[in-house]
């Protein structure tokens, strides 16, 4: 079963939930791996004692122009949906605007003169770590985009593929924030999505967007409210009105923030949280199974 931990708003506690669930699943004797899909700011590995197994380079297609062969016909630029090829035929000028290039390869198909060679550039790396904290062996996969690269999705895809190849019974995906392409890429092939929000107007506004997106994708999901005690009651009213499952509530507590900021898990520091996350895990597995 593949479970994504996501949210519309950033900083609501996705990684807090994902890392604690990962540990809890292990302690329950389940075979599980965690994939940190927040490739622009991965930090899940801060919470575990890990051993690096391997590093994979993520490459993307990037056209290379042979200007000796180019006749400046402009077909490549016409084929490009992203305006990534800048050409002025009467000045014999052609530049690739790499920040706009999506690596789709349409330009190479368009060129009839053999002026475009296939080449690749590294856009990020995927690292595989093993953890042996508990009896069961578990893995943590981290996707990390290279500085200056624009598109996170190929790195997320590669990280999830690495996670899939581990063949653990459960795969927990820690999603990037927002509801745009990186979020979609992360939740696309999951069986269940856990949305983490907070009871504030911002939390609710972004939760709505995430809910609408998941409905569109026909994904089953439930909500965890973090920082309970903050803000107002509107998130609860919304969940009730929309008949959305409330999976758990995590209190707005300075101790939680302290533990997290020091790289500690709640479930190893507070016995009550350890029990609580076990019940959350069971709920997620049950909800995920019933919707499969």
């Amino acid at each position: 079963m593949k479970i994504a931990i996501a949210s519309g708003k950033g900083g609501t506690g996705k990684t807090l939930v994902a890392t604690n669930l990962f540990y809890t699943f292990q302690r329950m004797g389940l075979s599980v791996s965690l994939v940190d899909c927040d490739v622009e700011g991965p930090n899940a590995l801060n919470f575990f004692q890990l051993h690096k197994v391997k590093v994979i380079s993520v490459k993307e297609y990037c056209p290379k122009f042979d200007l000796q062969q180019c006749i400046y016909c402009g077909r490549c630029a016409d084929y490009c949906d992203y305006n990534a090829i800048f050409i002025i035929p009467n000045q014999s000028q052609l530049h690739l605007l790499s920040h706009l290039c999506h690596g789709c390869g349409a330009c190479a198909v368009a060129c009839n003169n053999g002026a475009i060679e296939d080449s690749e550039i590294e856009v990020g790396i995927v690292s595989l770590f093993s953890t042996t904290m508990e009896r069961e062996k578990a893995f943590l996969v981290e996707g990390r985009i290279n500085e200056g690269e624009h598109s996170a999705t190929p790195v997320i895809k590669a990280a999830i593929n690495q996670g899939d190849s581990l063949n653990t019974d459960f795969l927990i995906l820690d999603s990037p924030p927002g509801v745009s392409c990186p979020f979609i890429q992360t939740v696309a092939k999951t069986d269940y999505v856990v949305l983490v929000t907070e009871p504030t107007p911002f939390g609710l506004s972004d939760l709505r967007q995430a809910v609408e997106t998941l409905k569109h994708l026909h994904k089953p999901f439930g909500v965890i409210i973090n920082r309970v005690g903050l803000g107002n009651h509107d998130v609860y009213d919304y969940l009730e009105k929309e008949h959305i499952a409330l999976l758990a509530e995590i209190p707005f507590d300075k101790k939680v923030a302290h533990l997290y900021s020091e790289g500690n898990l709640l479930v190893t520091s507070q016995p009550i949280m350890s029990k609580y996350f076990e019940s959350i895990s069971k709920k997620i597995i049950k909800n995920g199974n019933s919707s499969c």
Binding site: A77, Y82, N83, F86, I87, I88, P89, L97
Partner: peptide, 21 residues
């Protein structure tokens, strides 16, 4: 022609006007 382009409207506009000298 590129007013509503998803991305790269600026570079496309430069291309458009540059081709007209």
């Amino acid at each position: 022609p590129n007013m509503d382009a998803d991305e790269g409207a600026g570079p496309a506009a430069v291309r458009f006007v540059a081709s007209r000298n």
